[in-house]
């Protein structure tokens, strides 16, 4: 029998194994876009609703005492003898939050979902860093079972730091999704893009956890509290089609997270039912996300990373 668990030696140990130079060169041309225009703490490369000090003119308003005289339009004052203040669109930075599921179930499949997610997180993070976005990485689950964070990275020079942090993440334990999402929702600041990389195969359900993110958490805002949320459901080919993983005959299936056992006899009828159940599960997740303005993306780990980033995620509106 062939198991879907990858061998340990194949796991990346260096940053360039997570992302190579060729891909980095391609990603230099890519930026993370948001369906929303955010106000950031620092001037960044984002256009913001907030009028500010960028070069793009926005509007005029009457001068009031205390305004910065540098923004008075003296030409208009000369013609109209009134003081008008020029208003510009201010460019702000973007917060990019990448949440990595490090539960034991992610270490399944060939290629395994956890390594795939680390590479994807690395690529997305690099895009964020190279575009001067404020990148924060989260992971939940793992052998420690705690929520880990690497926050507020900006600039390409932080790429190695981000890669090292990702390399140090190990899969294991049980994903307490609800608690993790609650922690992340409370811990995030400002506004930006939130990407969750998980298989979302959760016995306790994903609804409560996602609801934390959709409700805006500590920000208290609606529609994700200013965060454009992406739920990326990463599944291995063996989960999409168990027959490809060599699951035949009479089996004793063991859940790698909680040790739960399911005794099955693999039959065509059961496989058909499994696929229908999987489709229904993913469909329910997608519908749940759509209702809460969360973008749901299903990713097969057998998918090529270039294709995923440069074509698939572009089409889904995450990258541009």
């Amino acid at each position: 029998m062939t198991t879907a668990r990858p061998n340990r030696p194949t796991r990346p140990t260096r940053v360039d194994e997570l992302i190579d130079g060729r891909l980095m060169a391609k990603l230099d041309q890519v930026d993370v876009i948001s369906r929303k225009i955010f106000a950031g703490k620092l001037q960044g490369e984002r256009r913001s609703k907030r009028r500010g000090m960028s070069v793009e003119f926005a509007d005029y308003r009457h001068y009031v005492a205390g305004d910065d005289l540098r923004f008075v339009d003296w030409n208009i004052y000369a013609r109209l003898d009134k003081l008008f203040l020029k208003m510009f669109l201010e460019e702000e930075d973007l917060s990019l939050l990448i949440v990595l599921d490090a539960s034991a179930s992610m270490e399944y499949g060939d290629p395994d979902k956890f390594t795939f997610c680390k590479r994807l997180a690395m690529a997305l993070g690099y895009i964020g860093l190279s575009n001067q976005n404020r990148v924060t990485l989260w992971s939940y689950g793992g052998p420690e079972g705690e929520v880990q964070r690497l926050s507020n990275l900006r600039g390409r020079r932080r790429t190695q730091e981000m890669g090292a942090w990702l390399l140090n993440r190990d899969a294991g334990g049980t994903a307490r999704f609800e608690d993790a999402m609650k922690t992340i929702a409370l811990g995030r600041q400002g506004k930006g893009v939130l990407i969750i990389l998980s298989d979302f195969l959760l016995k306790e359900g994903y609804e409560k956890g996602l609801r934390y993110l959709a409700s805006g958490g500590a920000s208290g805002g609606s529609s994700g509290g200013g965060y454009d949320t992406f739920a990326m459901q990463v599944l291995s080919p063996q989960e999409i089609d168990p027959a490809r993983g060599g699951l035949t005959g009479d089996l004793k299936l063991t859940d790698v997270e909680d040790g739960d056992v399911a005794e099955v006899t693999i039959t065509p009828a059961l496989l058909r039912k499994y696929k229908a159940t999987l489709d229904a599960y993913c469909g329910n997740l997608r519908e749940f996300c759509v209702r809460r303005d969360i973008t749901h993306v299903t990713i097969d780990t057998s998918m090529d990373m270039d294709t995923l980033l440069l074509e698939y995620l572009r089409k889904r509106g995450l990258l541009a």
Binding site: M1, T3, A4, R5, S105, M106, Y108, G109, K113, D199, L201, L202, K203, S236, E239, L247, G249, D250, L251, K252, L253, T254, D255, V256, E257, D260, V261, A262, E263, V264, A269, L270, K273, Y274, A276, T277, L278, Y281
Partner: peptide
Amino acid sequence: KLRRRPAPVSCTLLWKKSLEDL
């Protein structure tokens, strides 16, 4: 003959649900 081969899976959720439906 009914002794089953052990096989780890990421989650038994979908399998159990499929069996129940079947």
